[in-house]
Amino acid sequence: MAQMASGDDAALFTFVDSFGDQVEAQVRRIVGGLFRSDILADGDEINGLVLNVCLAIHDRASGWHPGGAPPWVWAHSAIRQVVISHVGHRQVADETGIEGDVNGDQTVGADVTPDTWHALTNEHPYLQLLDQVLLEEGSARDRWIFIEYLTQQGSGDPSPANTVGEVFTLSPANVRQIVRRQRVKLKRRAEGDPHFAPLLELPLVSAA
């Protein structure tokens, strides 16, 4: 990674040879979560995805810190984005009930960066309210865990707590606990402040 960060493109190929199998396992998990068994069965497709992912990691190598999570865990969001942009989203109803309001024509299934999240909150009043509560009542980390969890769930990830846990180096139980706490905060705020009352229309909040 240090070699890649220094701009030596040859290190990209060394990385593929050394860690391609680990990256492939991550790619297969994501593709499997999207229920694309056709892609899983196609060795060329998987190889192409692995190489694209390695290129994405290469392009972000300067942001990685030695001693941190392995690159394929650290870059999970980018990996997921590469896979989804190639494979497409799983089309499922979101059990939170937020999909219809959040998605519209947008694709929340791709991992949300701060910029895209900001853009989404500007476009969708429910998200703006939700984010206002998250910003006012919790840590920045918990806010992003919650956002990432919703994103994974919205894209059909069958184990969003596991995925988010990998990204933030937390156990799935911790992730679930944080999400539960955020939902309770949202509900309390929605019940106590008429400005936030519309949030109660979301099962995600009302069922907390």
């Binding site: 190929f13 593929v16 391609g20 199998d21 492939e24 190889n47 190489l51 290129l55």
Partner: peptide
């Protein structure tokens, strides 16, 4: 997939 089996030509083409 074994490292030596992985086809790196698509990556070469992207880099090219």
């Amino acid at each position: 997939m074994n490292a030596t089996e992985r086809d790196l030509t698509p990556l070469c083409q992207r880099l090219a």
